[in-house]
């Protein structure tokens, strides 16, 4: 079937199987590999994207569900060549190690800061509790999000 949706502010029209997972559509059909897959069953958060601004798991969504929606992936956060404040804070606070969880982690943080511009540390921890990170021990990620919140406020 043909579906059309907005991907990182650009209209996309693509012929795809309706039951194709969104993560596969992004990575394999559109060649956008910033969104990662770590488990395929909603247990790691690496594939988190924003659908109409809300964080969702692209491994648990079917291509057909994108019809008419607006999807933001990690590639869509950079504006005019500038990193999003959350991305910037991840870099400067050392929140990135292997980096495979980072795109999903950043998307969850962006979702959080839209809902709650000045979250406390525990609220930040809760907000990324669906994003597993095996490298950092989370602390520097929490630091980064806290600092990005201050910057955005």
């Amino acid at each position: 079937m043909k579906i059309s949706f907005r991907l990182n502010e650009k209209m996309i029209e693509i012929e795809t199987a309706p039951d194709r997972r969104v993560i596969d559509l992004l990575r394999e059909d559109l060649g956008i590999t910033g969104t990662k897959e770590g488990c395929g069953s909603g247990e790691c958060g690496a594939c988190t994207v924003l659908i109409d601004g809300v964080s969702k798991l692209s491994c648990l969504m079917l291509a057909a569900q994108l019809e008419g929606r607006s999807i933001t992936t990690i590639e869509g956060l950079v504006q005019d060549g500038k990193l999003h404040p959350v991305q910037k804070a991840f870099v400067s606070h050392g929140a990135v190690q292997c980096g495979f969880c980072s795109p999903g982690m950043v998307m969850s943080a962006v979702d959080l800061l839209q809902r709650n511009p000045l979250p406390g540390r525990q609220e930040i921890r809760r907000a990324v509790s669906g994003n597993l990170c095996r490298c950092t021990g989370y602390q520097k990620i929490i630091d980064a999000i806290q600092s990005a919140a201050k910057e955005l406020d």
Binding site: G42, V54, S55, K56, L57, M61, D111, R126, N131
Partner: peptide
């Protein structure tokens, strides 16, 4: 329940 993204879905 679950995680934020799961709760959104």
């Amino acid at each position: 329940l679950g995680s934020p993204a799961v709760r959104h879905m």
